[in-house]
């Protein structure tokens, strides 16, 4: 059963709005940040590896033209 009579009643949280929404807001923000940074990790790792491979390739080329 719904515990609140109206939307404003719900947001008011029986007078504890500040503490309840602060908790939920901070939790949401922390989890969202964690999930976004974790999801971006893979691409960053792969790009770093690709860059390293390009460097190795260039090094090989300069070596072979010198000799």
């Amino acid at each position: 059963m719904m515990q609140f009579d109206s939307i404003s009643d719900f947001f008011n949280m029986g007078g504890y709005a500040f503490y309840v929404w602060l908790s939920y807001g901070v939790t949401f923000f922390c989890l969202a940040t964690l999930i976004i940074t974790s999801a971006r990790q893979k691409r960053k790792v792969l790009i770093d590896i690709a860059k390293k491979m390009d460097r190795e390739e260039r090094l090989k080329e300069t070596r072979s033209t010198k000799s």
């Binding site: 719904m2 515990q3 609140f4 719900f10 949280m13 029986g14 504890y16 908790s23 939920y24 939790t27």
Partner: peptide, 21 residues
């Protein structure tokens, strides 16, 4: 937890923090 769980008779709606805490 936020909408349907009953209000606590001692702590009122502040107890709803429990559902993440």
């Amino acid at each position: 937890g936020l909408v349907f769980a009953p209000t606590d008779y001692q702590q009122g709606d502040s107890y709803r923090i429990i559902f993440i805490h």
